[in-house]
Design a protein around this nucleic acid. Structure first.
Length: 111
DNA sequence: AACCTGACTCGCC
DNA sequence: AGGCGAGCCAGGT
């Protein structure tokens, strides 16, 4: 199990209609400092359609401005389609949709 | 093989 | 309050 694998597993654990910050995913993957790697991992996104990268936002709930899978606006669209409320055009309502439970990914699990 | 960079975050100045 | 540097991992040059 590599770091990327754990990151992907963590992202896939994010329930529909909810979002998680890069930090949350990083923490679930092993270390909060992996946040940068999380972004890189999602950028690589070898499993499009399986990994809900649109549910991953920055700590403020702001959607990454960097070119996403189909454009930052597209990401906001998908989130709204899942029932995620927005504070404005680029910030999701963290109070209501930020996941509070994100289990640590076990390496030996082979998951 | 080494160095640089990148969808981030935190701590210091 | 705003800016800068450090830390993390992987992939490309």
């Amino acid at each position: 199990m590599k770091t990327f694998e754990r990151i992907y597993e963590a992202v896939k654990l994010i329930p529909e209609g909810s979002v998680a910050t890069y930090g949350q995913v990083a923490e679930a993957a092993g270390s909060k400092r992996l946040s940068r790697v999380v972004g890189y991992a999602l950028h690589a996104n070898p499993l499009p359609g399986i990994i809900p990268c649109h549910r991953v936002v920055k700590k403020d709930g702001e959607i990454s401005s960097a070119f996403a899978f189909g454009g930052a606006n597209r990401q906001a669209e998908l989130l709204q389609a899942e029932g995620v409320a927005f504070r404005d055009g680029t910030h999701v309502d963290m109070e209501r949709h930020c996941v509070t439970f994100l289990p640590l990914i076990q390496e030996e699990k082979g998951i």
